[in-house]
Nucleic acid binder design. Structure first.
Lengths: 260, 260
DNA sequence: TGAATAGTGTCTCTTAGACAGTATAAG
DNA sequence: CTTATACTGTCTAAGAGACACTATTCA
């Protein structure tokens, strides 16, 4: 950052600095008793109202957009994301991750407005709270296919596209999946979450996945009173419960071996 | 991005939007004829002058900082990074990658100034051009250790720290190494580049690395006139030349297998 | 008992990693 | 003929992937 230029002429400064959040969740739709549910990756979008608080026409009215808001001068975009998420959904403590900045000239008709984009993984349960805090008509959970088809405000299509790319990458390379799951889960649940985003034969094939998963260093079987803890929530056969531990896997294209 | 609030009161807007670039290179110091050179990861920093063009005292004068500059309202931070890099070094066409935004209140005494941070990999050759375009006294290539010890302007220590983290990650997970190497290179050169950043026994061990590397899907042996092309620039024994192809490796913690 | 989910047994083929050995050319 | 680099041979143990088989429970 060179300040010479800054003083040498009057620079045009941005007209706004926004923080936007792509809120993802995976919904489970029951597929019958004792069956693993069908899962879908969904994104939360809000419909922009026709007028603002003062009754003036709203920009990009009627279109769907990512939740978010303007960053205040005494906070970071990260904090704005936390605050807005809490205001809109009543939920905090979620893992928020920055993934990009959108600053193309002309991306917002109001002027030179930057967007600092984040994504968030929300466990399905959080949605139940959300429904009560806001009118369901202007906040919706959409599948990715639907979200990319509807009329999106600003450059939010591009932002959502990118967010999905980052989610896929992080799902494959990190233990991100844990944020989509309850603390204790069954292998078919993990498999279901992974398959909403990844397309990998070794995950898809039951035999391969059920053999491999218990050996993963970041997963551990749950015990209770010295006995392995099982659940039959998705099957007649009681299935072993697992949880993520704190192991952070590191992979490399040159060595392939998991390390942490 | 909700516009209600935008219209409902006069928002404070940022005082500046900067684009900073962490320029990395790996220097080779000859270790004697027919020996692989010793390599060091280095970063390019500039020393902030005491006064600006108009003779006014400069902010953070005398400290070292990342090259960069203010984003103009008709360009993106990415374009600013390209422009500044060209202005400062006379070189274009480098791979510029965004990795973060720095927006903590108080990070810059001049006001609310955001920094959009990028890193760049510069091949060693580019530095020779650079030396001629600028006074060498206020642009220096420093080892990482040195860079993190000297007096850095603003929050550039944090930015550099983060940049190094991203470089290490990308070096392990992508074919980033190619940007540190000539088009055709010998395996010991690749090994040297990787070892400046990664600490992996399967890279460090010659036998393992020399056996593995030729099988990597993103590397291919170079041929010329139907014969394998060799070089003895770093050894008496002619060594096979390799180049990167366009294969983009994808790894996963759940499957470990390389895919593209 | 059948049906559905949750695993295991076993086999084959490939790969990682270690250790030792061979090959090449300069001086 | 020594030395330093660049590999290759060979072994072992672990892992991936495929296919068939067993185990558990509910209705």
């Amino acid at each position: 950052m060179v300040s010479r230029e800054y003083n040498s002429k009057k620079f045009i400064t941005p007209d706004g600095y926004a923080s936007d959040i792509a809120v993802f969740t995976i919904t489970s739709e029951s597929n019958g008793q004792y069956k693993p549910p069908i899962k879908f990756l969904k994104i939360m979008l809000i419909k922009r109202s026709n007028q603002d608080h003062e009754g003036n026409p709203n920009i990009e009215a009627g279109k769907w957009a990512l939740p978010g808001g303007f960053v205040r001068s005494n906070e970071t975009a990260f904090q704005t994301a936390e605050r807005k998420l809490y205001e809109e959904t009543g939920v905090g403590g979620l893992r928020i991750k920055h993934f990009g900045v959108y600053d193309s000239p002309g991306r917002d008709d109001r002027g030179w407005i930057l967007s600092n984009a984040h994504y968030v993984i929300a466990n399905e349960e959080f949605l139940k709270n959300r429904k009560t805090t806001k009118d369901a008509s202007d906040i919706q959970l959409l599948t990715i296919e639907d979200a990319l088809e509807i009329n999106l405000a600003f450059d939010h299509r591009k932002i959502i596209d990118d967010a999905i790319w980052f989610i896929k990458k992080d799902m494959a390379l990190t233990t991100l999946a844990k944020h989509f799951l309850p603390k204790e889960f069954v292998l078919s649940e993990l498999q279901g979450v992974l398959l909403t985003v990844l397309d990998d034969p070794s995950i898809k094939t039951d035999a391969a996945f059920f053999r491999k998963a218990p050996t993963l260093p970041f997963l551990e079987a749950v015990s209770e009173n010295g006995k392995l803890k099982k659940s039959n929530r998705y099957s007649k056969t009681p299935a072993q419960l697992y949880r993520f531990n704190d192991f952070q896997p590191i992979t490399s294209v040159y060595s392939k071996k998991l390390k942490g």
